[in-house]
């Protein structure tokens, strides 16, 4: 059943997977090649540029997570979930199969990031004192992808009613935030919320922290 689901989803999102895999492979290579222009004489700038390139890893994970989740559920949403409801399996099992198939399709992207990182770091002649993290970087990328895919998957799988409630809640939050900012400029509800979500133990803490392929 899982194999059939993977095949089904592959047909729906193969172009997204292929594009993101290529991006995952090229990202570490491009980050190292563009930053290494000055070689050893430009080490501080190299690390600074690498740090800036590092911002693209969580961005790629976010893009991959959202694109995969949306692609996986697009046919179901178009068909108002009639296909899923006619299958002789419980709903939870169907959702679980979709989830596992989605994670399987994310594997090539993670593997590409790992391979790109290994190739990029092995081609440099770094001075003593600098360390490389190709495996840890790929693992961090995988974790960020799991979290973001899970989040986007939950949204994409939700019923129209649940989605409506979510959107209304979000609109209310933004309205309250704007009102509060106008009256009390020092209070920023939205920023506090984003900070809470993106730092330990928030769900998106995996996106933060250091994304350095090479560091001191």
């Amino acid at each position: 059943m899982l194999k059939a689901m993977i095949r089904l989803q592959w047909r729906a999102v193969w172009h997204i997977v292929a594009a993101l895999t290529v991006a995952g492979l090229l990202l570490p290579l491009a980050s190292v090649r563009t930053g290494w222009k000055g070689g050893l004489t430009n080490l501080p700038n190299f690390l600074t540029e690498l740090q800036l390139w590092g911002l693209l890893y969580p961005a790629l994970a976010a893009l991959a997570g959202v694109a995969l989740a949306a692609g996986i559920w697009s046919s179901d949403r178009r068909g108002h979930h009639i296909y899923a409801l006619t299958l002789p399996i419980p709903r939870w099992r169907y959702v679980l199969l979709r989830y596992l198939a989605g994670l399987t399709l994310a594997l090539p992207i993670v593997a590409a990031v790992w391979l790109g990182s290994v190739i990029a770091s092995e081609t440099l002649d770094l001075p003593a004192g600098l360390r490389i993290f190709p495996h840890a970087l790929a693992a961090k990328f995988a974790l960020a992808l799991i979290v973001l895919f899970g989040f986007a998957f939950a949204i994409a799988a939700s019923s129209s009613r649940a989605l409506g409630i979510g959107v209304r809640f979000l609109a209310l939050l933004v309205a309250v935030h704007l009102g509060v900012v106008m009256l009390y400029p020092k209070t920023n509800i939205l920023w506090s919320l984003v900070t809470g979500l993106a730092t330990w133990p928030g769900p998106f803490a995996a996106l933060g922290g250091r994304w350095m392929l090479i560091d001191v």
Binding site: H80, H81, A84, L85, R91, W92, V95, L96, Y99, A139, K140, L143, A144, I146, V147, G150, F151, F153, A154, A157, S158, S159, A162, W200, P201, P203, A205, A206, G209
Partner: peptide
């Protein structure tokens, strides 16, 4: 960080199972 990410991943999956009552 590893445990946190896996925990939240599992929680989102549970959430997906809960909100998918079509």
């Amino acid at each position: 960080g590893l445990l946190l990410a896996l925990g939240w991943g599992a929680l989102f999956l549970a959430g997906a199972l809960g909100v998918s009552k079509w």
